[in-house]
Design a protein around this nucleic acid. Structure first.
Lengths: 229, 229
DNA sequence: GACCTAATGGAACAGGAATCCCGTTAATGA
DNA sequence: TCATTAACGGGATTCCTGTTCCATTAGGTC
């Protein structure tokens, strides 16, 4: 978010044209890759922040590249040229979001760890800004394969961050040895997202604690063992 | 889906204008309410089916009322006048979907019941047509309050259909007496939806069985008791 | 069967988003 | 510091979505 120095790999659409894969087409390279420093990076940071604001306010369906350009105080042409579509812009935003990993809290017990995770997710989704942003990117991922891939990478990062608390519980003998730590961590988030999408009930701490307790009970019962059946 | 005879209550937006609630405004009533029989019903059925097809093919973000009108072999003006927006059309489609409730299978055991539910959800989401349709309506619900309300009613119907298998298990003494049957039923679906939205892993029967087993274990452990804490 | 009018449908119209053109600015390497 | 050209930005243009107007069709009722 805060002034990305470079764009390491292709943050935009892989290639604009499908013609002549043999020729490198030096003049048709994706913008932002040859001179990624200085202005280009500033433009990207401003546009991503503006996109975030716009998504929070109007959701993905109301995302307009012209509006984003105005908010970012950047030319419309620039936004259309570098990102092209709202889906591609959200995908780039998601890769940016994935890079800022917030470290997990480390407590000693499985129950505490899972509850900390559940409350973090609950607070995020219940927060007006963060919650709206997450809903918007989920919508984008459901509409576009590129955004979907970016969303998957984002959640993979998050799950990887929290998986150790399950493996440590396995090592302590609290859980079956072949417990799938990814599946267990996802089990904490799942009820919270499902509730947000399909009910009007509030996402409060009680819901978070229930999700954590349910995941823990299921894990202890061996519901997330790998070679099931 | 198959030729709705009438439209019992207001299927469209509640009221187009906010002006003068005292006057009934006889000439400005919402179309389709005064003469709901015959052609009007046929048009609604054709449009809803066309909307379903369009959603499956292009998703909610690609839903175009003009395209829907063409598929339904109905005038564009009619679709724009009766539904107005893509969100309202999806909301009407959802109320139509909620009316066709498929009855739950009744087995004797909690584990079997939950697994039957999980596999039904899994098959629905894994089916190319049904899965795409569900993703599309979830997107619509995330974008529009009216569609969200319709989606909630749809899922409420579904959960109500399956809740008895939990209450029966409570009566048999398999589960704690104050188990929240709605929460328990939702716990079966949650991991499947979460997996569909945030990962690329396939929604197979193993995932369904895992979801059912996890929900059962959590329920037995008392994770869905009402007066928790 | 005849009347009334709700509801439909074709066509023209309007507004806004995406694209194109081309001059300007500044990042990169010497 | 200077030359090169990648990247940006303003404005005109095109295309498409949504609206409006009015003639036509067909429910509902006597």
């Amino acid at each position: 978010m805060t002034a990305e120095p470079p764009a390491p790999d292709t943050p935009e659409t892989p290639a604009p044209g499908t013609a002549t894969p043999g020729t490198p087409t030096p003049g048709t390279a994706t913008p932002g890759t040859v001179r990624p420093g200085g202005r280009t990076a500033r433009v990207r940071a401003a546009v991503l922040r503006a996109a975030e604001d716009a998504l929070v306010e109007h959701g993905f369906s109301g995302l307009d590249l012209g509006d984003v350009a105005q908010r970012a105080e950047v030319g419309r042409t620039t936004v259309y040229r570098r990102w092209g579509t709202t889906s591609a812009l959200v995908a780039d935003l998601l890769t940016d979001m994935a890079e800022q990993s917030l470290p997990r809290t480390r407590t000693g017990s499985l129950a505490e760890d899972l509850r900390a995770n559940a409350r973090l997710v609950q607070r995020t989704l219940a927060d007006p800004r963060q919650g709206a942003l997450f809903r918007a990117v989920i919508v984008a991922a459901t509409c576009d394969p590129g955004a979907a891939e970016a969303l998957r990478r984002f959640y993979l990062r998050r799950v990887e961050e929290w998986a150790p608390c399950v493996t440590e519980a396995v090592e302590r003998g609290e859980l079956p040895p072949d417990t799938d730590e990814f599946e267990a961590v996802r089990a904490v988030s799942a009820p919270l997202y499902y509730r947000m999408l399909t009910t009007a009930e509030p996402l409060d701490e009680a819901a978070a604690d229930r999700a954590a307790a349910a995941a823990e009970a299921a894990a202890r019962a061996g519901a997330y063992r790998r070679q099931d059946i």
